[in-house]
Amino acid sequence: MKIWTEKYRPSKFGEVFGQRDIVKKVKALAENGNMPHLLFSGPAGIGKTTLALVIAKEMFGENWKGNFLETNASDERGIDVIRNKIKDFARTKSVSTEFPKIIYLDECDSLTREAQQALRRTMETYAGSARFILSCNFSSKLIDPIQSRCAVFRFKPLDKEEITSVIDNIAEKEGLKISNDTKNALFDVCDGDVRRVINTLQSCAVLNKDIGPETIYEVSNFARPKEIDVVIKMALNRDFEKSRNKLLDIMLTNGLSGLDIIKQLQAEIIKLDVEGKTKLEMIKLCGEAEFRLVEGSDEFIQLEALLASFGLLQ
């Protein structure tokens, strides 16, 4: 048995779901053979990595692995990756093809500024032998000189119709029974993130091939715990100590960063059962906390400051 996110990852331009305009343009660039550096930006799970892989497979055919370097900036942050790994790969000629090699650098927004400067130089120096495909969640975190060296493509979350076709395709091949209610549930829990859709489907399928909406919610609750609303409620009730302990607990057991937590908090606040004005206040506070968290060094202290401010609201 294979993992479905890989099994159903498209390997041809024609197989990609969603991002139709982008795929069309990129395909033309790739076929033309003179592809510029590319920058893919957009949220997770909507096909950035997939499209990069498709480009490599379509351009290089069987030899794609030798001519394609995949690395991500979040595990191998910093200047060393750029200096060593990428340079080593970029300075040799591509194997059995006239196209330049492709270097895919994922999660570029976590590169430090110094590393981005180094990257910019590398992009220039090796422009003859290699093309870069950069991917990031927010292109604003990349320095201008990098953005200006790339053709920028902004990926959008897949709409309901496109997600449905992903689901139908897998359901047919795996012999799953999925009702419209189930599809709605999937759409509800996955926020247009295809990776999450497929992971959820495979997890549900180990339980039963006939998948009902409850199973979807069950799996999703297991994979993405909702305890964060407990933290908010404790903070609103001025039970600061309990709320911060719970928060640390959640962060450590699930390996979540401060930014992950802020995102979840924000989503929970919107659904919270309190007055509109209070919600608005909370969202504002969240915004300030996120700003400080990005600017600061100890994420947890920033989150605690946020929890303490919730205590003044009611």
């Binding site: 979040s74 595990d75 999660e107 699930n254 992950d260």
Partner: peptide, 10 residues
């Protein structure tokens, strides 16, 4: 095809 961080989360 993903970072460790995102693998752990997603």
């Amino acid at each position: 095809h993903t970072s460790m961080k995102s693998f752990i989360k997603e």
